[in-house]
């Protein structure tokens, strides 16, 4: 098992290098002259040359990448242009908040998706199955920002739940956090829940069509026991499906955090876009991608724990 994990982590390294290269390229994509942008139009040629040298812009691009990745590995992701703070510490602080929202919505999406998908897989032609099936197609099509807006409207109209932020004016207790978390988590979870429902329904019905299911019936096992075994066999697929949703959620929380003023990476990136604060955007994107790569390592590892054939 340890060797599996080591192998899988080693496989992730080239992907992580690739990810960092892509992020570096996006920095280079910015049109215009970064030095001119920083110094303004009245800079002297001497000041220009100094800054170019200080930023390492006179070096060949591959060397610039090496400098950059070296700094990143030391936690130095640059300085936010708009906030004049270290991007690293800004992003790190916000990331914790994003993680709370991410875990909550992933939990909701997986739980709901599995329940709905199971209904569809077990009773595909029943009225309930058809309703669930088309509802999940609807859920897939609703943008997360639309759900967020609808829920925000609901909160505004009813006043039942807080409309934004992470904590009320109060004590910052867990209950307070939970109340603030409910709507953003549902808003982020609805679309992935639809996706999980549909994909899990396919995965589970594939398992149910396998011969061992009929063999278990022929051995007199109860329907409940058979469904239990089928679920166990659909677990590897569920892991893959859920892993995919992490990627979807990391993107979707951007809008949800913006609409609900949740102080996470998404909201940071949103304000960074309007102030064209590229270092902050890139840091947010980089950390999300790294998290996603690591999540996939975890998914594959758990997969190996569940399925002895993968372990071998």
């Amino acid at each position: 098992m340890t060797s599996f994990l080591t192998r899988r982590l080693l496989l992730a390294i080239p992907i992580l290098i690739g990810v960092s290269i892509v992020v570096f390229i996006t920095i280079k994509l910015i049109p215009g002259d970064p030095v001119a942008a920083l110094l303004g139009p009245n800079a002297t040629p001497q000041a220009r040359a100094d800054l170019v040298a200080r930023m390492g812009l006179n070096k060949p691009i591959p060397l610039q990448y090496v400098d950059w990745i070296w700094a990143v590995l030391h936690g130095n992701l640059g300085t936010s242009i708009s906030l004049q703070q270290s991007v690293g510490s800004l992003v790190l602080k916000a990331f914790g908040n994003t993680l709370i929202l991410l875990v909550a919505s992933l939990f909701l999406a997986t739980l709901g998706g599995v329940v709905l998908g199971t209904i569809v897989a077990l009773r595909p032609r029943s009225v309930l199955g058809r309703i669930v099936s088309s509802t999940s197609l609807g859920a897939i099509s609703i943008p997360q920002y639309t759900v967020a807006l609808l829920l925000l409207l609901f909160a505004v109209e009813t006043g039942a739940l807080p409309t934004g932020g992470m904590h009320g004016t109060g004590d910052g207790s867990f209950g307070d956090l939970l109340a603030h978390l409910v709507l953003p988590a549902i808003a982020a979870a609805l679309t992935p829940m639809g996706i999980v429902a549909r994909m899990f329904a396919v995965a589970l019905s594939d398992v149910l069509a396998q011969e061992f299911v009929e063999s278990m019936r022929a051995r007199g096992l109860s329907q409940a026991a058979i469904v239990r075994h089928a679920m166990h066999n659909a677990l590897p697929s569920l892991l893959t499906i859920t892993g995919l949703q992490v990627g979807y959620l990391l993107g979707g929380v951007l809008f949800v955090e913006t609409i609900f003023a949740w102080p996470g990476i998404g909201q940071q990136v949103y304000s960074a876009i309007s102030s064209r604060d590229m270092p902050l955007i890139q840091a947010g994107v980089l950390i999300s991608a790294v998290v996603l790569v690591l999540v996939n390592v975890v998914v594959d590892t758990v997969h190996a724990l569940v399925d002895p054939r993968v372990r071998a």
């Binding site: 992020v23 994509l29 990627g247 993107g251 990136v269 955007i281 996603l292």
Partner: peptide
């Protein structure tokens, strides 16, 4: 490996 919309945002914001 990137969340799709985030990569689009990074490229879009740069361009």
């Amino acid at each position: 490996a990137f969340p799709a919309i985030l990569l689009a945002i990074a490229i879009g914001a740069a361009l």
